[in-house]
Simulated scan of single mutants.
Amino acid sequence: MNLYDIPPRQTQSYLTELLKSRNIWPKNKMGQNFLIDLNLMDLVVNSASLQPSDAVLEVGSGTGSLSNRLIENAGFVLSVELDPAFQKLTEETVIERDRFFLHRGDILKGKNQIQPQVTEKLAEITSMPGISGYKLVANLPYAVATPVMSNLLISRNPPTKIVAMVQLEIAEKIISKPKSKDFGALPILFQSLAKVEIVRRISPAAFWPRPKVDSAIIKIDPSPLLRSKLVFEGVKPEDGPLCFRNFLRGLYVHRRKNLRGALLSMPNNKLSKAEIDAKLVILDIKGEVRAETLSPLDHFRLCSQFGGGVFVSGETDETAD
């Protein structure tokens, strides 16, 4: 039976009393920092432009406060919670259970894959009558924010929108431009697949317990048109984003090298320096430049020349920045 007939508003006093009554203490290592600024919670929900035809993927249900707000506006909510204590709490505090499903476990299977059970459940939910797609709307734990968003973005079933609270450093990196210190594999991947923007910078005071760094609400609008352009010889169209992601990872393993050196040092490279230079001449790109000075379009052109099917399965030890 649910504890409340009306979803409570998540204030600091409400949270402290609720968790104290259950002998639950937030775990810093799991990124358990709960949003207590109610205006910002409204901003997150409003920025997602939710409709009854939308399903929502939430990562980190916590106390169920945002979950309830999402259920009010969307057609269905799939929430993922790793912590058993908060799994139980979510089950008790979520009101409309007929349009809510809680996945008990991790959102990720390793750093490069969304948990298959979550992927399967998303496919099941988005095939329901009246549901046309899903959006990721979440206060993402800092440790998983980048792999969750990037793995969803390149998946064969990407979200139609992402609105997430993330570490400010991550948000600023995603929107960074060529020749800046933050520009690299991560922003190139995101900007090649979506329109990205920071909605609002958030101070630590908006959360309880307070994190040590600033956060931001980031909005990402995946573009089917941009995605359709990531087509490479020898690669299935649906695997184009994966190929591009892995190419970028390999290219930025040796970030301090010039472009020629970075290409020579890429995993699985079998080309000589002369062969690389010949391909760069075709692209009209100088081998002496650094990769981070080039545009996302130039990186696509590089992948077309140097990528190929090997980068669909090829992995590196580095995450996407």
Rank of each mutant, 00 (worst) to 15 (best):
I131Y: 03
E318W: 04
A194H: 03
T126H: 01
N139M: 07
K111E: 14
T93F: 07
Q51F: 11
K257L: 12
K195N: 08
T316L: 08
D239N: 13
E197I: 00
S132Y: 07
A48E: 08
V196N: 02
K257Q: 13
A55Y: 13
K135Q: 08
N46I: 12
V59M: 13
L186V: 02
I175W: 00
G130Q: 12
E169P: 10
D284M: 03
L186C: 03
A185H: 00
M165R: 07
P158Q: 08
T16M: 05
T293I: 13
L259Y: 05
K121W: 13
L225E: 14
V59G: 11
P241T: 05
I71K: 00
R9A: 11
L193T: 01
F76G: 03
M128A: 12
V44H: 10
Q51W: 04
P52E: 13
F100C: 08
V312T: 09
N33H: 15
W208M: 09
F207E: 01
F207C: 09
S313H: 09
N258F: 07
V77T: 05
E172V: 04
S223H: 05
V77C: 02
P296G: 03
S176E: 00
K257H: 12
L122Y: 09
A320V: 12
Q115N: 14
L43G: 03
I202G: 00
S79N: 05
I95C: 13
L136C: 12
T90N: 08
N33Q: 02
N68E: 02
D37R: 15
V231L: 10
Y142C: 08
P241Q: 03
D54H: 14
A278W: 00
L3K: 09
S79A: 14
K29V: 15
K181Q: 15
P237N: 10
S176W: 01
E275Y: 02
G261M: 11
T146P: 09
L186H: 01
G60A: 11
A85C: 04
V312N: 06
P178W: 07
I162R: 05
K173Y: 05
S313C: 01
S180V: 04
D277L: 07
L297E: 14
N39M: 13
K179Q: 13
